[in-house]
Simulated assay, not measured.
Amino acid sequence: MTTRRGVLAAGAAMAIGPALAQGAAVRLVVPFAPGGSQDVLGRLLAQAAGPLLGANVVVENRAGAGGVLGAEAVARAAPDGTTLLLATAGQLTIAKAVGRRLPYDPIADFTPVLWLSDSPVALLAAPNLGVADTAALIRMAREARDALPYASTGIGTNTHLIMEDLKARARLNVEHVPYRGAAAAFNDLAAGRIATMFVSVPSVLSANGAQFKVLGVTSRARFPATPEVPTLIEGGVPDFEASIWTGLSAPAGTPPAVVARVAAAFSEALRSDLVRSRFNTLGVTPNGADGVAFGAMLREDLERWTRVAAPLNIQLE
């Protein structure tokens, strides 16, 4: 008996080309080192999507230069559907917005395939700050004589730019203190040396909540992993949204039929019980918007962060 899944897998294999029919693997380039949240997400999707494509989807970790090395490898690969990028803003939109020198054009050199997932960031406050919610923090930061120090996970990262966007919109008197990651920032937040910061929801879920007060999240609706935490919109910042998104991209020039088949397989993988159950523990939600919507988001994301970064005079090595 022919199943829908079997038809999809067979069609995908034929559409991508004879190489897959002969057992060649599809490379899913994850531009980060093994073990991180994006690597876990990539391996999960590869496991679920492979049978739907009728191919072995192999994760290839290409860390370095903030993920730029991995993205470059995909941009230069043959546009035949056998090399894909697990894309994030760090290689595409934010990378260009902050003036990083890129060996590729993040829009022109890739074909957007599928918008895979979203995760908001959480706004945190130091326990000794004495604020109960986002509105209280905003009032304090507006009225502060001396700038409140805020942490980020690095200059030109999403946690840096999201706070600078909030600073501009809400007229906050805050000062940036960059860290090399969330762990050290959490320590200083707990000790009161840092007043506030944005950080990814997965980092919040894995950390000791006694170290900080979670004030809000940057999704439009309350996030399923933290249903008790209000959004920043509820906290009085109109239309303030930000997502740590993940997408699937292919080299520019990949045939539309190939893109459609790859998108169909990964879209069905997103709906699988395996992926949905693990996404909950990872602190992310499946998106599934098609390549057209993903491409439109990329252009909007690039415009937003370029506007936010322009007055900051960010200097990257």
Rank of each mutant, 00 (worst) to 15 (best):
P127V: 06
F240L: 13
L85T: 07
V131M: 07
T83Q: 06
I138K: 02
N173R: 14
R43H: 05
R261Q: 14
L172W: 00
V177K: 13
A260C: 10
L69V: 12
D165Y: 10
E60M: 04
N313L: 12
F32M: 07
D118W: 00
L205T: 04
G70R: 04
L215S: 05
A151T: 00
T83V: 14
G247T: 07
F279Y: 13
A9E: 03
D273S: 11
F198P: 01
E300S: 15
A9N: 02
S37V: 14
D133Q: 09
L161M: 01
N313Y: 10
A260G: 06
S249I: 04
T88Y: 14
M197E: 08
T157N: 12
G6T: 13
V68Q: 02
P224I: 03
M140V: 10
R307K: 12
A21V: 15
D239N: 15
L298V: 03
S249N: 09
S272D: 02
V259I: 07
A108E: 13
Y179P: 01
A135R: 14
V275I: 02
A77G: 10
V229R: 03
T82N: 03
A95K: 02
D39V: 03
A12K: 04
A183L: 14
V201M: 11
R304T: 12
A13V: 02
L148H: 11
A141C: 13
L148P: 10
T226C: 13
L116C: 08
A250S: 01
A13M: 11
L282Y: 15
G288M: 11
P311F: 05
G90M: 09
Q91Y: 00
N287K: 10
L205R: 03
T159F: 10
F110D: 09
D118E: 15
F294H: 12
G291W: 03
S203K: 06
N287V: 13
Q91H: 00
V40T: 14
H176F: 08
A250C: 01
S249A: 13
A71Q: 01
R276K: 15
A122W: 06
A168Q: 15
A21G: 14
S200R: 11
L28Y: 05
L20W: 02
L161I: 01
